[in-house]
Design a protein around this nucleic acid. Structure first.
Lengths: 110, 110
DNA sequence: ACCTACATATAGAGAGCCTACATGTAGACT
DNA sequence: AGTCTACATGTAGGCTCTCTATATGTAGGT
């Protein structure tokens, strides 16, 4: 997967995986990989800064937890993040529709 | 349309619109807009450098033409560009599939 | 003692898309 | 004549995000 392709879609991915319930960074990376059928291998150096950014702008909140002697920073979706995710989802539909109609032109335009 | 979303997909868009036949930069911008139903308004400062980059790496070739007193640089797809476009199209399918399965999880995973 | 899995974090590089600006022709309108 | 819009190309610099590489530390297995 070309790294640049992810640009601008990372937020949607991260918000989406924490939608069902709070998760910590490492688990988020695994969830991303699992839910994409192995297609998405996002490095830690991408995810951790991105999570902090999303927290800084208010879409996520975090708290520390210790599980089995390991410290975890657990992220959860805020109300703002939930609204943002809705927006990201409709933006994704518009985006794929726009690119798709250029890449695969046909008699399917309204 | 969030600018970052286009990242890494510009090449596919540009190669795709010149696939049917040679076009100059300005016409490419209009074609992009038209074929996307108005969703894609790509600024000249994005398109012209991108076209030059694609020519530099051999996916496009260009030649000057004068039409109605105006100078145009007309781009056409090279063999390399045609192969690249094929790759971009299958990459696009994989990309949308991966992101889509994270954004819209459901009982549709193989 | 060593290795792997788990877990988080930061610095710096790299790339490409955007804004803003510069330049010029043709044609229409006032 | 002067102005405006559409057509047409181009560059400089900024911005932001993703990645690579590195650092740190715990727990558990061999």
């Amino acid at each position: 997967m070309n790294p640049d392709a992810l640009r601008g879609h990372m937020d949607a991915l991260l918000l989406s995986v924490v939608e069902a319930g709070p998760l910590h960074g490492y688990a988020i990376i695994e969830a991303l990989q699992e839910r994409s059928g192995g297609a998405l291998s996002v490095p830690t150096g991408t995810v951790y800064p991105a999570l902090r950014r999303l927290e800084r702008i208010g879409h996520l909140s975090s708290e520390w937890a210790t599980v089995g002697g390991r410290k975890r920073r657990t992220y959860r979706l805020t109300d703002s993040g939930r609204r943002q995710l809705e927006g990201e989802r409709s933006a994704w539909r518009e985006f794929t529709s726009a690119i798709g109609s250029v890449l695969h032109p046909g008699p399917n335009s309204p």
